[in-house]
Write a protein that binds this DNA or RNA. Structure first.
Ligand code: FES
Ligand code: FES
Lengths: 132, 132
DNA sequence: CCTATACCCAATTGAATTAGTAGGGAATTA
DNA sequence: TAATTCCCTACTAATTCAATTGGGTATAGG
């Protein structure tokens, strides 16, 4: 039961960007990738998703880069996980009932769903400004 | 972020066994594996771990099999996950600080730890008797 | 206008972990 | 003594995740 790099790297990148919110300057991919020790091209794809979700904005060319597009107070961890495509369920059955071995009611699923719900709650309650 | 089959199968097997607690009879591996749709040889390994953790007891030969060794009221989901070796942390860093990219303090880790704690709480609060 | 910068994007490969299989052994009962 | 059923280790297959490759396009500055 582990978070994938999508979620891990995604949050770390956003925390990094959130630090520069006030300055309004763009931070290059290279800079983020070096500071956070994340492969450049891999991180690039995550930032692309974050951009499509309007959590960051970009600017090309010299002095270009990425910056957070809203105040850190308005972005929570759930937004980030959702944007990068980190799934928040613990067993497939929770999402896709047809995959479940028990057709009608699965006792185990009660537990897995409850856990997933808790995770989601933490993610939704935690905003970026609390992390910097 | 998914639970592995260790946890999934493990809990399902235990729920199955818990149903027969009153009868005190042994249930064969074959029977559990068929009812739950879990590969026999794979499940066997999980049951071996559950036995080593004293959550189930076994008997060989004809009419032999597995049975739960304590009342379902006394076994919680955490016991089971721990026994089968399902890790309850979401990022490696939470367990092994030396793997963490940020030496002293990692903002992200605050979130991952909190989530893991929630999962652990649910696991510890949920007893088998509530699931049957 | 031209060049360096830096984001943009798809496809592929590589690595790691997980899931499942195979097969021989030992205890118990009828 | 034969059938049953747990016991145990090693191996293989499958899947998923992580990372790389390599080319493209917009922008700014000289
Ligand atoms: S078999 Fe699907 S959650 Fe139980
Ligand atoms: S890098 Fe280890 S939890 Fe942040």
């Amino acid at each position: 039961m582990k978070m994938t790099t999508k979620g891990r790297y995604g949050l770390r990148a956003m925390v990094e960007l959130a630090r520069y919110y006030e300055k309004e300057e763009f931070i290059s991919l290279k800079s983020i990738s070096q500071k956070q020790g994340i492969p450049e091209n891999y991180l690039e794809r995550l930032l692309a998703k974050l951009r499509k979700a309007s959590l960051v904005e970009t600017h090309r060319g010299t002095q270009g880069g990425y910056r957070i597009s809203r105040s850190p107070e308005e972005i929570n961890v759930y937004d980030i996980l959702f944007a990068v495509g980190e799934a928040i369920y613990l067993v497939e059955c929770t999402n896709n009932k047809s995959l479940c071995h028990m057709q009608d009611y699965c006792p185990s699923n009660v537990v897995w769903s409850k856990m997933a719900q808790q995770i989601e709650d933490v993610a939704k309650k935690t905003y970026l400004d609390e992390l910097i």
